[in-house]
Write a protein that binds this DNA or RNA. Structure first.
Lengths: 344, 344
DNA sequence: TGGAGTCAATGAACCGGTTCATAAATAGTT
DNA sequence: AACTATTTATGAACCGGTTCATTGACTCCA
């Protein structure tokens, strides 16, 4: 065994070729499992690679090939626990297919979204999955249409030419609202995020749809949108419960906002279930283990991650598929003790 | 459909050079803000770039430069909500410095860790921050020592030659245990993760340190390690509370395991606070909003993320810094209603 | 034995930037 | 005016792989 100090400089195909006594092209063919290589030669080259401790330079491969085997994921804020589940599953699927995941957060700003698309393009990223702060934003739409690589939208719906993976938020919100209405509630307050984006928009749609069956209109004073942080949820809840005519039920439809809402109720000494019914827009340990447990909408974010990665991989392969497929994951309502018949 | 290779349509330095009537080298110098370019020429080149819609190919830059402006982050499982905070903050710092974040999960397996290090090397990643499943694993240590780029350990301590960012888990666990002992508890059960890694190991140290002051030894039957999932926590809790002589207090020291523990207690109708005191190893909405609220150990993961990114950037710049700096973020105990004096 | 056909291996050109030795132009000095 | 020093621009070589037209060897069969 040769124990030369080969640590200092990196080994290249040329070195492997010399060691094995073949041409560089042959080394490359071995590297890529090209069929037209004699077993004997393949063996010799592989031995040479092992002896020298050779490792391909993916950068060089990328440049020549024009593709990077990178897939980017840009979401508005990945410290949302359930989003992490999405990313985790997507990463597994992508890595198994030989891709590496690039991660960035958009902080829900159109200019950052556009910047990131540029950065991904310059990196020759092979595919992108992302959320959008505003699906109708002109510049963002232009940046998307100029993207040379396939882009898949996460939980966004309005750009028909792109692949999309979504949850059925409309149905979830409809179920939740219906559930409360069935319990006699008529003054249901709703907290949603930014209605420029699909999830909040469709939750609002579902909410209104459920209401429309009752014949009465929801009180606009009870609707709070742009609830984007825990503090927003705290303030919105506090302000709602301070109204002269407060709501009898609270639908915290924005993701991961339940904590802020419950904090406000506790501060005001309002009992969940008794004083007010509460339904959460997404499930969590908190919802399940609260006293009383909180009724919540649930959907499979892990499955969304897997689907997103799979669809994007298909698109990157250039399979003959129709443009702009949309996949919707179902939502369901988990009924727990926080939502109760309206006491009279 | 004209399937012209996309490449032929993209604008290259050569095209910009022709348009501006200069040499390619000049375009490159403009691109990189090299000082020795006449303002007039710079202007002409910049106009040409704008006119043609030129965008650098980062892949080509990377190959030539031998560095990719990529930083990889590999952690055992990023659907741990508080870890997401770490990543988020690190990503911001890195992006501001011109780096892009690569993300992968190790699933806490040494072989995956080694594979990922290889993948990062082949991508000419400029820096790595990661967790390790087992700091003493021979092959992992070898892979680390062979890594040509700086590696920073996240919440791991035993490799002195590498930079590290950690939380003071030992002190946190000591505080928590002390707190319970002060309340008269002598039979304290502890749930920890994998003690081959720093966090659980030092929590155990802190636990024992607090106990040693009492003169009595902790009952080994009350120690459960390798609690890595919510289900593990559920089973461990159920089994502990079924002992002939069950614990009077429960220290759920593993991260994000509180849910499983509380679920078990609820199933067995054991009241938190009354039936048993509970302390959580990490804070969360669940701990804060539970009834009663759960005493918890807290530390600043966002700061850890910022520090990790900053230290890695310094190291990548090749600043003259001593090898293997360790930075420890303090932990504190937030005392709430779930931990109470031992009833007699 | 010779010619067609098959199959492996070769190595120069190429991907798209950056670098640097060299040349050209300009400024400064005596 | 002559010469040196300084500044700015040039373009070929280079980074480390992959590709493909070409070459060489071997097989098959008349």
């Amino acid at each position: 065994m040769s124990s030369q100090p080969l640590r200092s400089q990196t080994v290249k195909v040329k070195d492997v070729a010399r060691e094995a006594g073949v041409a560089v092209g042959t080394v490359s063919r071995v590297l890529n499992g090209h069929p037209t290589v004699t077993p004997a030669l393949r063996e010799r080259v592989e031995r040479a690679m092992a002896d020298l401790g050779y490792e391909v330079d993916v950068t060089a491969q990328s440049m020549r090939a024009g593709r990077s085997r990178l897939v980017a994921c840009a979401i508005r804020d990945f410290d949302i626990p359930r989003f992490a589940l999405f990313i985790k599953e997507a990463e597994v699927v992508l890595r198994e297919a030989g891709y590496t995941l690039l991660l960035a957060s958009t902080t829900n700003r159109p200019d950052v979204e556009i910047d990131l698309l540029g950065a991904f393009r310059r990196r020759r990223v092979d595919g992108v999955m992302m959320t959008l702060s505003d699906e109708r934003h002109r510049d963002v739409r232009e940046a998307l249409s100029e993207a040379p690589m396939p882009v898949l939208l996460i939980d966004r719906d309005s750009i028909a030419s792109l692949d999309r993976v979504m949850a059925d938020h409309r149905e979830g919100a409809r179920l939740a609202t219906n559930h409360l209405i069935g319990f006699g509630h008529r003054r249901i307050a709703m907290l949603v995020g930014d209605t420029k984006a699909f999830p909040s928009r469709s939750r609002l749609d579902g909410f209104r749809e459920a209401y429309s069956a009752t014949g009465i209109a929801p009180d606009p004073k009870l609707l709070r949108d742009n609830v984007l942080s825990s503090e927003d949820a705290y303030r919105a809840t506090a302000s709602l419960m301070s109204l002269a005519n407060p709501p009898t039920a609270l639908f915290v439809a924005a993701m991961d906002m339940l904590g802020g809402c419950l904090r406000a109720l506790r501060t005001m000494s309002i009992a969940v279930g008794d004083g007010i019914s509460v339904v959460a827009g997404s499930d969590s340990d908190l919802a399940e283990l609260h006293t009383p447990p909180i009724t919540a909408i649930e959907w499979d974010l892990a499955a969304m991650g897997r689907h997103a990665a799979t669809m994007l991989l298909e698109r990157m392969r250039g399979d003959e598929i129709e443009r702009g497929r949309g996949l919707t994951v179902p939502t369901q309502l988990i009924i727990r003790g926080s939502s109760r018949p309206l006491a009279n």
